[in-house]
């Protein structure tokens, strides 16, 4: 298992404000690294910096030739656009065969290709977004906070779905989440972020103290909502 991503001294400043300060961590191949942190902690900014779409200081070192898939948090405008699922894939010039393979892998039937994006259920839409990120056949997925609570099809949660994909495609996954149960069940490593790196550990090493420090008073709320 090699190292797929190495981050050193990473700082991001936006509009004169420091959003991320001096982060350092490594991601190994095959890991599921969850990024925990309160609102405004800079989690999404971190993903965008890793994608290279935000200016940053410090070192972000991807393994050479690595392909990255990005699943954004929300796409508020997409439902206003008259576009079928098939056309959404075609925006990337995806071949029909690849699209079919991906549909199989994300567990959707081919007739969804003709459906309007705006008419999908949130679970279907989430799957399509993941599928779309898989088009380039990436080795690593950056996933910005899946809609928690949405059962993606009956019993299977988005996380079980991701874990299956990970096995099938040998993916490494970086995942922003608010859901502590996800961290305990699925993550191999966990990163706590609030502008600075507050923890970088195995999930079982997360202590109530470190979580309290991360979230302040909010922690109770999180434990209850996903108990």
């Amino acid at each position: 298992m090699g190292i797929i991503l190495k981050v050193e001294n990473l700082s991001v400043e936006l509009y004169g404000e420091t959003i991320l300060e001096n982060l350092a961590f490594k991601v190994e191949e095959g890991e599921i690294l969850t990024i925990l942190g309160p609102n405004g902690a800079g989690k999404t900014v971190l993903l965008k910096a890793l994608l290279g779409i935000l200016p940053h200081k410090g070192k972000i070192e991807w393994r050479q030739g690595v392909k990255i898939g990005y699943v954004p948090q929300r796409l508020p405008f997409i439902k206003d656009i008259p576009m079928s699922v098939g056309e959404f894939f075609k925006l990337k010039k995806t071949s029909d065969k690849i699209t079919r393979d991906i549909l199989k892998s994300i567990g959707l039937a081919e007739d969804i290709l003709r459906k309007k994006i705006g008419s999908l259920s949130s679970g279907q839409f989430q799957r399509i977004l993941v599928g779309w990120a898989l088009v380039s056949n990436p080795q690593i997925l950056l996933f910005d906070e899946p809609t928690t609570g949405v059962d993606i099809s009956g019993q299977e949660s988005i996380y079980e779905f991701l874990e299956k994909l990970k096995e099938e495609r040998g993916l490494t996954i970086l995942l922003i989440t608010h859901d502590l149960s996800v961290v305990y069940k699925f993550a191999t490593r966990c990163l706590c972020l609030n502008k600075k790196l507050l923890c970088y550990s195995l999930p079982k090493e997360l202590t109530p103290e470190s979580l309290a420090q991360l979230y302040g008073g909010e922690i109770k709320l999180y434990e209850h909502s996903h108990g």
Binding site: K48, L51, I53, I68, Y70, P72, L75, F77, I78, I81, M83, K90, L91, K92, K93
Partner: peptide, 16 residues
């Protein structure tokens, strides 16, 4: 196609 993608999300377009 690029403009459609940018209308959906600038970030998504840039990440491509």
């Amino acid at each position: 196609p690029k403009m459609v993608l940018a209308s959906i999300s600038n970030d998504l377009a840039k990440s491509e």
